[in-house]
Structure formats: structure tokens, C-alpha cells
């Protein structure tokens, strides 16, 4: 279960960096259209250079999971803090409080018991599962490092519409998601993220405007 938090962090990072990498206006577009591949490794590198100037990022989100087999929606909300190069704090505030902090290969999961006392669990993700989930953790690390070669090598990127992108993992059997979709707002930040799971469930994220601090180097 804890791995799920980390996967979600991975997806959010993907979304945020993807959004920051493109400065075009966003819009609402149909979610399942495919278009030609537009982002080459070289283009991606160009987009990512802009992001490398970011020092910190804070963004609030609302999440809806659609369990297709049951026809139900599960809602939650929270916020995320990212500090370059490898610190992430992802916090769910409702329906129940829980936070995951990732720093390097260390993971700290904090939740509360009924009495409000904090329960802290610490892990080193090098010791975690060596399967699709742990490979996802490696993907996350590469995203944090903004390894353009890795992203281009592992994802096929489509532009569905202007500022509406779709990422398809090239190694589907190793990915927990069949595809990711991102919509970017006019301000250049990610407004929506959609994760499609292998079992056909979908997770929808809606983001508020992020608070950014640029690196003055």
C-alpha cells in the first residue's frame, strides 16, 4: 500500500515537470485521441532546461479515482512540495491524513492513529520490491533527475491537442499504468492529470496554480 503513495508522487512529478516544460496555453480536450509523436529527445531536453531553474514547487490537488468495475468514484485531496533535486513531500489531507516524504532513496510515511498520534515508517526503496512497482520507483528517480534520454527512451509522447499530451510507456508490462494524460493551462502549469491503470480504473487529478521559487544560480 505504501508503494502506491510513491507511485502517485511519480505521476505528479511527471505531470508537473511536463507542464513546466511546455509554456503553451492549456485547454479541455477529448481524452482518448491519439496524434503523431511530436516530442523528440532533443525537443524534450530543450523544454526541460527551463525546469532546471526551479528550486521549489508547492501545489494543491484534488483527486478522483473511478473504479470502473464498480461504477464508483473515490475522492481525496492534498498538496505536494518538491525541492530540487530530489526532495518530495506528498500529503493527502482528506478523507484521511497521510504523507510520504522522499529524499534520495529514503522514504518516510507518516499517518495518524485514532488518538491523533503520529505513526512513522521509514524505508529505503533500494530494499523494496523488485518488480514493476520498484521499477516505477526507478522511473520516478529518473524523472526527478530530468533524464530526458530516459523519458524519451521509456515513453512515447503524443500531442492530442494543443497543451494536451499523452504518455505511453514503451514497456507496458513493466508499467503500472497503461497511459498518462496531461492538460496544461494558459499559465503554463499542469491543470489536469489522468492516470489509466492496467485494470481500467482511472485516477483524475485537478491542480491549482503552483507556487514556484526559481533558482538564482
Amino acid at each position: 500500500m505504501k508503494i502506491k503513495f510513491l507511485l502517485l508522487v511519480f505521476c505528479l512529478i511527471t505531470a508537473c515537470f511536463s507542464g513546466l516544460a511546455t509554456q503553451s496555453d492549456g485547454g479541455n480536450a477529448p481524452l482518448s485521441l491519439k496524434s503523431k509523436q511530436i516530442v523528440s529527445e532533443a525537443d524534450l531536453k530543450k523544454h526541460l532546461i527551463k525546469y532546471q531553474q526551479i528550486k521549489t514547487l508547492f501545489v494543491k490537488f484534488e483527486q478522483t479515482k473511478k473504479v470502473k468495475s464498480l461504477g464508483v468514484e473515490i475522492k481525496s485531496q492534498g498538496n505536494m512540495t518538491v525541492r530540487h533535486p530530489d526532495f518530495i513531500l506528498w500529503k493527502i489531507t482528506a478523507p484521511s491524513e497521510m504523507s510520504v516524504t522522499m529524499s534520495g532513496s529514503n522514504v518516510i510515511i507518516v499517518s495518524k492513529n485514532f488518538e491523533g498520534k503520529e505513526l512513522i515508517q521509514k524505508y529505503n526503496f533500494q530494499n523494496m520490491l523488485s518488480d514493476r512497482t520498484s521499477k516505477s520507483m526507478l522511473y520516478l528517480t529518473k524523472w526527478l533527475q530530468l533524464d530526458a534520454k530516459f523519458i524519451a527512451d521509456n515513453y512515447t509522447i503524443y500531442e492530442l491537442e494543443k497543451n494536451h499530451y499523452q504518455f505511453h510507456p514503451k514497456q507496458k508490462e513493466e508499467s503500472p499504468f497503461s497511459e498518462l494524460e496531461i492538460q496544461v493551462s494558459k499559465r503554463g502549469d499542469v491543470s489536469k492529470l489522468i492516470l489509466k491503470e492496467i485494470n481500467d480504473d482511472e485516477i483524475y487529478f485537478t491542480f491549482e496554480s503552483p507556487v514556484l521559487n526559481k533558482d538564482k544560480r
Binding site: K65, I74, K75, P95, F114, N199
Partner: peptide
């Protein structure tokens, strides 16, 4: 009842996370 509400919320939080396999076993 307070405990049940608290626990149900916690369970829903877990359920809202991505599944890690095809079968939806966690759900």
C-alpha cells in the same frame, strides 16, 4: 462510530491510490 468513520476514511484513502496489479486485488 467515530472510530468507524475515521477508519473508513483511512480505507478510502488507501483505495484511492493506484492499484499495483491487474486484478484489482487490493480493492
Amino acid at each position: 462510530e467515530d472510530w468507524i468513520k475515521w477508519k473508513v476514511n483511512k480505507t478510502l484513502t488507501m483505495a484511492s491510490l493506484p492499484s499495483i496489479d491487474r486484478s484489482g486485488i487490493n480493492i
